[in-house]
Each structure stands twice: as structure tokens, then as C-alpha cells.
Computed example of a mutant assay.
Amino acid sequence: MSPEPAIPLSGGVALELLVHGVGGTTPQEMLDDARTVRITGDNTAAVYRRAADADAEQHPERYLDRPIPEAYSWANLTSGNSSRALWLLLLPFMVVNLAHWMRPATQGLPRSRRLYGVWVRLVALTLTVLLTAAACEVALDLTVWQCAGSAACTAHHSWLGFLSPGQHGWWAQPGRRLALAAVVPAGLVTLLWYLSNRTWSAYESQRPPTTGAQDEPPPGAEDVRPGDEAADDAPAADDARPRTPPIRPALGRPGFWYG
């Protein structure tokens, strides 16, 4: 008689992810079950399971021959107020984030891993500076310095009349005009910070729930991928310590999105 397969203590169950299309299929229809529970997420976007599979991580022996179906419902992401359109400003920075997570495994090459991280951060910083410089070019140079300083241009753009030197107003001096126009790039950077901080606080900063402190990853190991070496300052795991299956959503397991 062949021995029974070993049951992993954590992360051993397989996942079948179901994602609906633009029609907005409900989680009950995707899972073919009227009784569903929300595993993670909120009213905007969430992951659901059948009620019978809610505690699957605690009983991995039940799912040795079949995956756990989970339904990702994102229908409400396409509805809401007009402020959601501002998130398009973060689209170029999302590409930089993807570049970080698409890094290939660097087993035995810790310097290459650090160099790649520094390179990605420099690209993100360059992108921020480029966007800010473009705002400065339009607001400070083209609008305030060139157009507002020309009587012919302000004659066709009456809203710049108070900046025209011909009006002899308080804002007509070049230094004051430039200081006023500097509000535009400063406001753009503030808006980017607000949008990214709001997104981070609502989604990315959330940690998957665990049953206890023994399931938390060691310090410095958050960015270590399968095939990578552990961080230099990460303490060695205590294999003799008893472990219990963690209660965490499958989509929130460390390493799930590494491919």
C-alpha cells in the first residue's frame, strides 16, 4: 500500500480563481452556490468563497484532490463618482510597480536583487520628476513667463490680465508671477501623494490575517520570492516550533502573485 501524501501545514491547498466579465456576474452565480462568504475586500471589490469552503486552510486534507474555488467580484470598480478618473494619473507609476514584481528570481545573487530594486526606484523617481517638470514647463514657462509677460498674449487670454505688466498690478512682477504659478506643480505632487496614500491605506497596506504570531513572516523576508535567498538580516526559522494552519485568504498568501 502506497503511503498517504503528506499534508502541508500552510499554503497547501490549491486555488481556482473565478473572475467575471463586464456583465457583472454575481459571486453566487460564479460559485454556483447561494451561500457565499466574503473572504477579503470590501463593497467595491472582494473575493468570495462558498460557505462550506470558508475554513479550507484549517482542513487541507479535504482538498487534496480538488482546488478551492474563489470568485473575484469587481463590478463596483466601474461605478462611482467622477473622482475615480483621477486614478489615471497613477497609471504610469503602476507600470513601475509591475517592473518590480516582474523581477526574475535571483537565487545566489543578493547584489543583483538590491541593484534591481535601486534601479526601479530610480525609474520611479525619474518619472515623478518628469511629470513635475512638465507641469512646471506649462505653468511657469509657457503660461506665466511667456504669455503673461506679453501684452499681445494677455489680450487674447483675459484671465491672465491681472498678471500682465501693463496692468501694473501686484502680481505683475515676474517673481510674484512665478511664485503663483508654482502652486500648479506643487498641487500636482500633492494630488499624486493623496491618491497613492489613499490607495495604499485602503488596499495594499492590509496584511492577511493569521492565527498567531508564529505565522507572521520574519523581519526582512517580505520581499523575498521563491528561489531567492532570504534577507541577510532575517532570523532563521525555528523548525522545532509547532505550527498551525494559518487562516488567510488564498489571494493574500505570500508568493501567490509571483507566478
Rank of each mutant, 00 (worst) to 15 (best):
E229A: 15
E137G: 10
C136K: 07
E70V: 10
G255A: 01
S83V: 12
P110V: 05
T106I: 08
G117C: 08
V138I: 15
T244V: 15
Q214G: 09
D141M: 08
G227N: 09
L91D: 08
T40P: 01
A85M: 09
R243V: 08
I39P: 01
R176N: 03
L195V: 00
G80N: 05
R35G: 12
Y203G: 05
A231Y: 00
S196D: 04
A250W: 02
S2R: 12
S205W: 07
A139V: 02
A230V: 13
D141E: 09
P218H: 06
A52N: 06
S82T: 13
W101V: 11
N76P: 10
G41Y: 01
R243I: 06
R35P: 07
G108P: 02
A75Q: 13
Y48S: 02
G24K: 04
L125M: 14
H59I: 11
T78K: 13
L131N: 09
L131Q: 10
A56M: 03
C153E: 00
L251M: 12
A172W: 00
D55N: 14
N43T: 11
Y116S: 13
V47S: 04
Q58D: 12
V189R: 00
P185D: 02
S201E: 08
E137F: 15
A230R: 11
P104D: 10
W257V: 10
L125V: 15
E70P: 03
P174L: 05
P226R: 15
T190I: 10
E204V: 14
T26C: 06
A139L: 02
N81V: 13
R114L: 14
A14W: 12
A230W: 05
P5L: 09
L91H: 07
T211P: 05
G117R: 06
A14P: 06
W87C: 11
P27V: 04
P209R: 07
Y194D: 09
D233N: 13
P174H: 01
L251W: 02
L178E: 04
V13N: 02
W171Q: 00
T126M: 13
A85I: 11
L178C: 08
H59W: 08
E216S: 09
R176H: 03
G259W: 13
G161D: 05
A52Q: 12
L195M: 02
A105I: 10
D55F: 10
A221W: 01
L122N: 02
A54F: 06
E61H: 13
I247Y: 15
T211E: 10
P219Q: 13
T128H: 07
L127A: 14
